[in-house]
Write a protein that binds this DNA or RNA. Structure first.
Lengths: 233, 233
DNA sequence: CGCGAGATTGAGGCAATTCAACATCGGTGG
DNA sequence: CCACCGATGTTGAATTGCCTCAATCTCGCG
């Protein structure tokens, strides 16, 4: 059996979980899946709401948040293409998955995936891989949240985004340019700071010549080595 | 084939990863495994050092830490019996596993486990389960690190320990008594605080009648509901 | 043009840190 | 036995980094 046409050129097929599936499994899954784009700010998986669907993230950024009764919020994870969004098996925790930018996804009904997980050890292995990767990232971020100063936190965030958009970035070059996927307030929620502090620290990095900001969302890292140093990585 | 004698009454057999194994697999693994106790402060898996062994934690507490160049430290995870300690597959992250108390473990050579993981989908599923649980805990803790005040952090820590030692604890009772597995400094590294702040907040909880402290390490929670409330959970 | 959302910048306050002194306890040896 | 020591914990005073509150700026949009 052939690999479905839409899957042929799909990134999730190569680096994502779909890479674990055989052509006939892809074909089966494809009968229930649908590609679509979702606007900024949409809920992909309600906090306490029923989880009805999983999806592969094909482009854009998804944020995972937790909220206290009094409204304090913390972003506990960011997902980029080609991550798998949604929780396999039951979960005791309550995270809220929300699009941080306009995203395009390939979504499946929960039942189809669950059935597939049962049957495909390779798929389970990919999920284990991704979960281990997310655990690593979460722990790295705990270091940032618990032990870094505000300036180091902001540098860490910029470094994270820069290297995620351009994996070759760590090897110093002449300017890494990208759009921030988060607002100042969201960055603050990611870093455990206030939005004012984030703004101040960004201004400081600009004044110090580590970054350029053509627009509030548009950043060019002119000195990635310096940024990495300030991030304490 | 029979379940090996040492495995019969082992907690890891029931709630831990060994529960995924068939009698013959247990018998095979048992030929290479060894039970032993380890003193406080020992490294179970070196940071950059080669990982040569995995183990099941049978009693005691293990802390997973990360360290910055300048010595700042953050505890990014605590493990209790019957957790599996050590990282399946390769890891890009560097965490340091150290015993926080005297522990007893059942350790295996890495090769034996890796072979077992390849062959047993059930074992991989258990590992996925534990990894998902750890991810949940890490994210819960990110909320604590990023958005809670010092008093809320300390209350969260005590609540975590209290409920881990006595799972029935959340249903209010007349005093949950336990020994803290961590020193003030270690609690500080867990909470992203200084040890002085931890000490002050513990004193405050004692003055407010939420806890008793017979000795620095010995705590009795007299008002678990109040503690939970102060932890913002 | 006026409006509102998002961002920047400043001033003042407070929570947690830093620095420092003192208390407690177990171990060790004169 | 008790004096001494180091490790661990508690408490106080001063400092500071971040937060809070508030004013101002920019930009897209009806």
């Amino acid at each position: 059996m052939e690999v479905p046409a839409v899957c042929q050129a799909c990134e999730a097929r190569h680096r994502g979980v779909c890479g674990a599936l055989k052509p006939e499994e892809l074909a089966y899954l494809n009968r229930f899946s649908s590609r679509r784009t979702v606007e900024t700010g949409a809920e992909l998986a309600g906090d306490s709401a029923e989880i009805t669907a999983y999806c592969n993230l094909l482009s854009g950024v998804v944020k995972l948040t937790k909220t206290l009764h009094d409204g304090r919020q913390q972003i506990v994870g960011l997902q980029f293409a080609p991550d798998f969004v949604g929780r396999p098996l039951g979960s005791q925790s309550t995270v809220d998955a929300q699009t941080a930018t306009r995203v395009s996804i390939c979504s499946f009904p929960k039942s189809a995936i669950d059935r597939m997980i049962d049957r495909s050890p390779q798929l389970r292995e990919r999920l284990l891989d991704q979960t281990l990767k997310e655990l690593d990232e979460a722990r790295e971020w705990m270091m940032t949240l618990g032990r870094k100063m505000a300036d180091e936190k902001v540098a860490s965030f910029l470094y994270l985004i820069a290297t995620h958009f351009d994996p070759e970035a760590p090897g110093a070059e002449d300017g890494i340019c990208f759009d921030l996927p988060l607002s100042r307030g969201e960055i603050a929620d990611f870093l455990g700071l206030t939005l004012e502090t984030v703004s101040r620290q960004l201004s400081k990095l600009r004044k110090d010549g580590v970054i350029l900001m053509e627009a509030p969302r548009s950043v060019t890292v002119t000195d990635i080595k310096q940024l990495r140093c300030r991030a304490c990585i």
